[in-house]
Every structure is written in structure tokens, then in C-alpha cells.
Amino acid sequence: MKIDWLALGAVFAVSLAVVLGLVLLFSGGLRALSAREAAQERQASTALPTAAAAACLLACVTVVLFGIYLIVAG
């Protein structure tokens, strides 16, 4: 009876890193979108928060697509 602890550990480590990373980026994106709304109301420039939100959300999509790519590439 041999259990491949290394593989199970890898599932845990990869899942934890990927999910927490996605949550951080997604929440960051929502915070940036909030800042953008606030800036709109103050009629200040929205350039910075817009760029930050776009960067965060694009990074989310990239992480997901890269994960799928890894599975397909075998």
C-alpha cells in the first residue's frame, strides 16, 4: 500500500496558491472599481483606479487560462 503523498500535497499547495491568488486579485479589482466610482462622484480623474481594476481582473483571467493550458498541454 503506497499513497503518493507528494501528489496529494501538490494538489493542496497548488489549489491553495491559485485560489488565494485569485481571491486577492478579484477583491483587489472590486476595491479598485469602488475607488473608480468614488472618483467619478468627486469628479476626479478615474484613470488610475480604472487601470488598477483592469490589471487585477485581467490577471484573474490570465491565471485561469494558464491553468487550463497546463492541463491541456499535459
Binding site: 485560489v19 477583491s27 472599481l33
Partner: peptide, 24 residues
């Protein structure tokens, strides 16, 4: 594993977006 990851993820999600706007 899914439970532990989801627990941390949920905690972090609520924590990080507490100050974000409700509309967003």
C-alpha cells in the same frame, strides 16, 4: 483540501471587500 482552501478564501474575500462599495 477543498474545505480548507474555501474557508481561507471565503474569510479573505469578506475581509478584503468589506470596504468596497455595495453597488460594485
Amino acid at each position: 483540501v477543498a474545505g480548507i482552501v474555501a474557508m481561507l478564501a471565503t474569510y479573505l474575500t469578506y475581509r478584503l471587500t468589506k470596504r468596497a462599495r455595495k453597488s460594485v
